[in-house]
Nucleic acid binder design. Structure first.
Lengths: 332, 332
DNA sequence: GGATAATATGTAACGGGTTACATAATCATT
DNA sequence: AATGATTATGTAACCCGTTACATATTATCC
């Protein structure tokens, strides 16, 4: 790979002039400019971004730290981030934290050492003080920790109420909830939304809340025992779609028909929810768009433009599908 | 962020000595070493990786270029790559190519400019000459273009034959194939495997091969018309699991019961195949492991160690599930 | 025509590390 | 005690760009 010196030598001018041509600033005569451009083409020269980064202390690079790219929610989010970032000339580092503080920390350290310009975090086990010491722009996505950080999330609390109400509307009498991990904000909000709607019901006890850890296998197991112990359950609100697929599977294995005997609603609106059988009713977040928004925000922060909003809370949309399509809806 | 100079000043020694302590080479007295370590801690100094990269012309960074992280095959692969790379101190750049040559090229350019140490490509629309001009190690994964490049893939041709034979074993008489894109090597191999098994059948015409472009929606549409035109079809081999979910959905919408009236087998063994209803029989590739292997190979190449193997072709495993679990298997 | 502004280009310091080479001090060996 | 090897540390060049500053040339204006 050619360097700027070689281009300078080939053109017979100084490196400063080459740099001026490259960056289109300062004065360069038309003639020299053409010669330089010629030489650049000839030598297939492209500036060394590392050298540029060293000088500018920025790298046109951002970090995207997710819990686990293998969880189908995150690829959609990542794609939204990537598409926008790429349009704006940024490349992205991907890191899976597995919700572990030490992994998160390692990535954030790396980010400082490699002069990453900013980060989008869809994971947070660190306290916000640690984040502040970074002195690099950070956008929190999907979870909110602290109003000090620009955040993109969606309306979890009220949407969860909508989800549970939808189950009621289709005639469910006893509604259970498969909750996600207790340390994840949105998981708690979803549970609280559920509780808000059912707390005054005579049947309600917290036995109707079981933990599925935001994954299908745990949700499957949890649902299995839940439904065995409580055959009276005729509606389940799963804290995310992945867990809802576990619920569908558990019901199937127990010979419980969906939606006739048990209506199921999920949360997230991942693509997979269209693929299950029966197709899954869900509270759909605008996942891709959330990724895009986070990317736009981060770019504004990096390039020192004022943010239009520091906090986006997107509305969530009820998408009715087969899993709650009970025939005899409660018109009775 | 402190620099090496500040540490030098704080300790009262030269930057060279600091560097020696950092890299653990050259001579440094116990005493000085301790003072330096002390100062490093005190100032929370961490070396600037960009400066290091500039000198060493390598960056402990690799590129992972995939067609689309949103396709559920790739997150599993990416995770395998990431886990190993991370263990070895590398961070990874993620890029989605959408199978487009210009996007791929952009990423490869970036990779040169940012002194990326190597790349793993799960996409290839470029000719291998272009790749060779990179002069950086590249590992091809999931697709083989050229034996010049170290490659990790799995046995597509014979496994596809196994898939079709399995359909025959469970009693299918007329077997169709949903093929993937014609420009993707593994897709063609899978089709050829199918053809190999059925070409001598009296019923066979290429009308039984329709294109689902490796995605569920196209496969759904293609299957819909396929099954309408050819109600005699009682087995479908889909070129990947994602398309197989489209097949399941099409069958469901046409009122065709699986596996009784139509047996379906996919390819890939993505996690989603366990979640569908009926659960999908599939030819499972060791996806995560393929990612790991590619990572190990790339690290060996980067660190100039000889490769044990230049070409891994993993066996693929038939996983029998409900979608081909026909009761009256062909013992008749 | 002379002063000032605009244009064109070069030199060298800088960013933050690494390392070849030079020098100095200590140690071992005969 | 003289010699050479080992240890300890510093100086400065280098990696590859960017840019402040200096200098030279040309254009503009009264």
């Amino acid at each position: 790979m050619a360097t700027i010196k070689e281009v300078a030598k080939a053109t017979g001018v100084s490196v400063a002039t080459i740099s001026r041509v490259l960056n289109n600033n300062g004065y360069v005569s038309e003639e020299t400019k053409n010669k330089v451009i010629e030489a650049i083409k000839e030598l297939d020269y492209r500036p060394n971004e590392v050298a540029r980064s060293l000088y500018h202390k920025q790298s046109k690079t951002i970090s995207l730290i997710l819990p686990d790219i293998t969880n189908p929610f995150f690829p959609e989010l990542a794609r939204g981030v990537e598409d926008i970032m790429n349009d704006h000339g940024y490349t992205i580092f991907l890191g899976n934290s597995d919700e572990k503080a030490n992994k998160e920390e390692r990535y954030l350290d790396m980010m400082e050492q490699k002069h990453v310009d900013g980060a989008i975090l869809a994971t947070n086990t660190l306290d916000s003080n640690h984040l502040k010491t970074l002195k690099k722009p950070v956008v929190i996505i999907d979870r909110s920790i602290n109003s000090d950080f620009p955040t993109v999330c969606s309306e979890n609390f009220h949407s969860s109420q909508d989800a549970v109400r939808h189950l009621k509307e289709v005639g469910c009498k006893v509604i259970a909830h498969i909750e996600g991990p207790a340390h994840i904000t949105n998981s708690v909000l979803r549970k609280n939304g559920y509780i808000e709607v059912v707390k005054k019901e005579s049947w309600f006890t917290d036995e109707y809340i079981v933990n599925g850890h935001y994954n299908d296998k745990d949700a499957y197991q949890a649902t299995l025992t839940l439904l065995k112990n409580h055959p009276e359950i005729d509606g389940i609100f799963a804290g995310n779609d992945l867990m809802a697929t576990g619920v569908l599977k558990a019901a199937r294995n127990l010979g419980i028909s969906i939606p006739e005997q048990l209506a199921v609603i999920g949360f997230d609106g991942i693509r997979m929810s269209e693929i299950t059988s029966p197709e899954l009713t869900t509270m759909a977040q605008p996942i891709y768009k959330m990724g895009e928004t986070a990317a736009y925000m981060l770019i504004d922060l990096i390039e020192q433009r004022p943010l239009r909003e520091r906090y986006y809370k997107y509305p969530v949309q009820l998408i009715k599908r087969q899993s709650t399509n009970v025939q005899n809806q409660s018109i009775n």
